[in-house]
Simulated assay, not measured.
Amino acid sequence: MAFDRYVAICKPLFYPLIMNHKRCIGLVIGSWIIGIPFLLGLISQIFSLPFCSSNKLEHVFCDIRPLLKLACGDISAEVYSVYVDGGLLAIFPIFCVFVSYVKIITTILKLPSASGRHKAFLTCSSHLMVVTLFFVSASISYLMPISGHSSVNDIVLSLFYTIVTPMFNPLIYSLRNKDFIMAMRKMLLKCLGLVGK
């Protein structure tokens, strides 16, 4: 999305040429290729963990951090690996988003009209808000010490970055669409019986 916003703001006339179907597929495949080795490493770590007590996972999904809380024995290498993987998986996307927004802001500030600058900032602010919510909650969840916060905090943070933030993404972008707003208004008025059928 940061690349999409960069192209939309900084190279608007070339947007259809740059953000074509092939480029979008390439960005998705690239994300998978980068993420799969990390996931395979986590899976191998999970299967090599020694478990000797409770098998009750106090979490909403099977993730490495709650499993590490259940493991017994020396798990320092696995804990260190989680921090390294979490840091690496966070640093690269955050850096890309930061660089794209520096370029976007410098381009926006060069726009001659105040209304153009305002519209461009509104377009980018929704994406920046969703990205910030996601990375802050995921970073707190994965980079805090495992014994540093409770299972309830882990659950709330994981629900936030896995469910709440992705749910906000289409909602935020849809609410900026005038056709969507009009359709929702008509549907609401129809449901309330204020408009004839």
Rank of each mutant, 00 (worst) to 15 (best):
D4T: 13
K103F: 14
T107N: 12
H118G: 01
L13Q: 10
A120C: 09
F92N: 03
I46T: 13
F51W: 03
I75F: 02
T106S: 13
L89A: 08
F61I: 00
W32M: 15
L13G: 08
T106Y: 11
G86R: 05
H59N: 07
I75T: 15
W32G: 15
S44R: 10
L70G: 09
V82G: 01
L70P: 07
C24P: 00
S76L: 06
V79Y: 03
I34R: 05
F61D: 04
G87C: 07
F51E: 06
N20T: 02
F61E: 11
H21N: 13
F14R: 10
G116P: 04
P16R: 02
I36D: 13
G87T: 04
G116K: 06
Q45I: 13
W32H: 14
H21I: 05
V102D: 11
S31G: 15
I108R: 06
F3Q: 08
G41Y: 01
Y80E: 15
G35T: 14
L49A: 05
Y101W: 09
I94V: 14
S115M: 07
I108E: 03
I43R: 02
R5N: 13
I105H: 03
F47W: 13
A114K: 12
V99Y: 12
K11V: 00
C62W: 02
S53T: 14
Q45P: 00
I9D: 02
